[in-house]
Amino acid sequence: MMTSIFIAVAVLTIAAIVFGIILGFAADKFKVEGNPIIDQVEALLPQTQCGQCGYPGCRPYAEAIANGDKVNKCPPGGTATMEKLAELMGVEPEPLNQEAQEAVKKVAYIREDECIGCTKCIQACPVDAILGAGKLMHTVIAKDCTGCDLCVEPCPVDCIDMLPVETTLKNWDWKLNAIPVTLVSESLEDR
């Protein structure tokens, strides 16, 4: 009777030691560098760096999400991003906490003759996409603009517009039924 108890205890102890060693090796061997979830979250975020989530940029928000913050604070990403985040984090999707922006991608445009050269928008731009110097006209590098809206507010003369990105042959979305059927003026056709 006693021996069987001893055997059981011994077996369990040995098993515990063996598994402990295995686990220890596994923890060492398959150690995860950093916190990959943050990178995954960040990869999903739109990188507009707009700060509308309340964090100074997308990376901090990604860290916050990884630490349990809500996934619905990214208006530029829209519902699609929120759903992906919810899926990644294994939480229920929630509606965006701000009014969802229209899906149209926009870029900032400075009405250049109205610009007074105050540089305030330059300081506000999170991606350094505005070019200019004090008392000189500024302009937006359209290809680098993320459409984050942050430059509109600081402008003292309100000369920044957010314009939707123009559709060209390259970014056309092939939605045929969206093509307006326009009548070409006969004069042009007859020439």
Partner: peptide, 30 residues
């Protein structure tokens, strides 16, 4: 037609990914 729309959406998505990466780099550089 479905495939074309899907393809262009995928293309846009890929481009946006590149742009997002650029934006991130610029943000970090800033």
């Amino acid at each position: 037609e479905y495939y074309r729309i899907a393809k262009s959406a995928l293309r846009v998505e890929a481009e946006e990914k590149v742009l997002a990466e650029q934006a991130k780099q610029r943000f970090e550089a800033r």
